[in-house]
Design a protein around this nucleic acid. Structure first.
Lengths: 125, 125
DNA sequence: ACAAGAACTGACTTTGCGGTAAGCACCTGG
DNA sequence: CCAGGTGCTTACCGCAAAGTCAGTTCTTGT
């Protein structure tokens, strides 16, 4: 285990959690990854609003934090899979709570949530 | 019911949740408020790292979002209390999950979490 | 009279997260 | 041969959230 010793002083536990999964995209990436293993391109299509640069940045950051793991087959054309590590899986209660609350709030406020766009071509039935 | 109709298109429920409680401080404020009613000054002391400007901004924002309510006695010296609304209380599962995960992670990584500084004078032991 | 404390407000600056756009290395299909 | 797909990297830029710090109104304590 890489010991990522954190020398920062936090004034509450929530603050520490946010320092790991805070920001606009980290949690969203994790939320998709909790649904299973995904290739880089699959994540891109599921989160169309994020730019490639930021997506890669988040993936790297989450990897360093030990929440996700990256598996490349080294072949060509490249194929890279991302998945939650056991520690990443320990976030699932949070991710599900965030998801459930968002759905409830959407009902209350009338916000629209687009269905997940899974595949690139022709998947849409 | 104040209808805060949200015309934004979100691509997942988590994204919607983050649009409400995202940012560096909102969640932390809520986490303290879930422990009970707090006066403005008490929040300031419990979250020493936040500036007054930002604290007020967040409180106003959360009020507009319907998650907290503000009660001023109108007297002088002023006394203002903040508390979770019922909708704010619906966030408690999230807040507790964030808290629990932070504590676990602190144990794993050795991060230090300062105990909550409750009172202004003489609270230390 | 003066300082301190309550709960803010406002002007100004900074910073970092994120967005845009382009390029790269390699392979396959037409 | 060239477009298109895979999985990135790099340089540059912009903006909104956050930080700094001073000021404000009123009251109580000394």
């Amino acid at each position: 285990m890489s010991d990522l010793m954190d020398q920062q002083q936090y004034n509450c536990a929530v603050e520490l959690t946010l320092s790991v999964i805070g920001g606009k995209w980290a949690t969203i990436v994790l939320a998709h990854l909790k649904e299973g293993v995904h290739r880089y391109g699959a994540l891109r299509r599921r989160i169309p609003a994020v730019s490639e640069k930021v997506l890669v940045q988040r993936l790297r950051g989450l990897e360093v934090s030990g929440l996700i793991s990256r598996h490349s087959d080294g072949g060509n054309p490249p194929s890279v899979e991302y998945r939650l590590t056991p520690e990443g899986e320990s976030l699932i209660p949070i991710l599900e709570a965030l998801h459930a609350w968002g759905e409830q709030r959407a009902r209350r406020t009338g916000a629209r949530i687009a269905p997940v766009a899974e595949a690139a071509g022709g998947g849409g039935r």
